[in-house]
């Protein structure tokens, strides 16, 4: 049986994800008048809470040792799906089954720009669930990997004084310090200069070797075909295609080149 060869690590079973957006969030002085006119038009109904149906009935099985790319145009639900796999975005219908705890590669939200790089390394490590001892152990490794201390003692400066590249390098270094069962990467490879990109590509390969399964969201088609052997193509929240990365990317490129929906129906050449 083909199925027995590799055990599934992630089973996504008919998942629907919706979220609610309150108001237009236009802000400023216009908001009050806009809200007023909206209320007048609708006869006094409350400011609309729009429901966004981001993922519509996606099912697939990921197995141990696979690296799976997620492609699709902006707003097609790729990142939302990753968050559902990570258990961070509740699903409306369907279920996500996972082996162990999948983790998103990213600690950006835990870091504070007003604090020094030093303190952010500790804070980020703790936020990812490391103990203080583990953070102390990994500290030098993280700083060395980021390479931000090569020219001056940047690590002791507040992060808001970093260039965007330096900040991105430090964030990636913190995020990549921990190994995971199922690793979810959202556009992480496009940070830093060419040298750092090579280094982070190597680190991703290591993480893949340690992790059972890797998911990668990227808008860079070469990255997908280089890193992944399988790809999922999401379009407007539905799974359009699932197969070898090269075929799926080729069909996706055909779709984006024509700009209309004729491509995916006939992927065979």
């Amino acid at each position: 049986m083909a199925e027995a060869e590799s055990t599934p690590t992630v089973v996504v079973d008919g998942v629907h994800i919706t979220y609610t957006v309150h108001g237009g969030r236009s802000g400023g002085r216009g908001a009050a008048t806009a809200a007023l006119s909206r209320m007048l038009r609708r006869g006094g109904s409350a400011p609309a809470a729009r429901r966004v149906h981001a993922v519509k009935g996606v099912s697939f099985v990921a197995r141990r040792g696979e690296a799976i790319g997620l492609i699709g145009s902006n707003g097609s639900g790729k990142s939302t799906l990753l968050k559902a796999i990570a258990g961070l975005q509740p699903v409306e219908r369907g279920q996500v089954y996972t082996h162990g705890q999948p983790s998103l590669l990213g600690v950006n939200a835990a870091l504070m720009n007003d604090l020094t790089g030093e303190r952010n390394v500790v804070l980020g490590g703790l936020a990812m669930g490391m103990s203080r001892a583990e953070v102390r152990e990994r500290y030098a490794e993280i700083v060395d990997f980021s390479g931000i201390n090569e020219k001056d003692d940047a690590i002791s400066r507040p992060m808001r004084t970093y260039s965007s590249g330096m900040g991105a390098r430090l964030r990636f270094s913190i995020a990549a310090a921990k190994s995971h069962d199922v690793l979810l990467i959202d556009e992480a490879l496009s940070t830093g200069d060419a040298r750092f990109r090579r280094r982070s590509q190597r680190r991703i390969d290591e993480l893949r070797a340690e992790a059972g399964t890797v998911f990668l969201v990227s808008h860079s088609n070469p990255t997908i075909t280089e890193t992944c052997e399988r790809a999922l193509w999401l379009e407007a929240g539905t799974l359009r295609m699932d197969g070898p990365a090269k075929e799926v990317v080729a069909a996706y490129e055909e779709f984006t080149a024509t700009g209309t929906g004729t491509g995916p129906g006939k992927p065979g050449k």
């Binding site: 055990t7 599934p8 690590t9 992630v10 089973v11 996504v12 079973d13 008919g14 629907h16 519509k56 009935g57 996606v58 099912s59 099985v61 559902a84 796999i85 990570a86 258990g87 369907g94 279920q95 996500v96 089954y97 996972t98 082996h99 999948p102 539905t238 799974l239 359009r240 295609m241 699932d242 197969g243 070898p244 075929e247 799926v248 069909a251 995916p264 129906g265 992927p267």
Partner: peptide, 27 residues
Amino acid sequence: SRTLTEDPHAPAEDLRALALRHGLTVS
């Protein structure tokens, strides 16, 4: 490679059975 269009509900039992057989937990 198969193009998927409609019908997201039909295989629900199969996938759940597969997940449970391999001891996966709900995320």
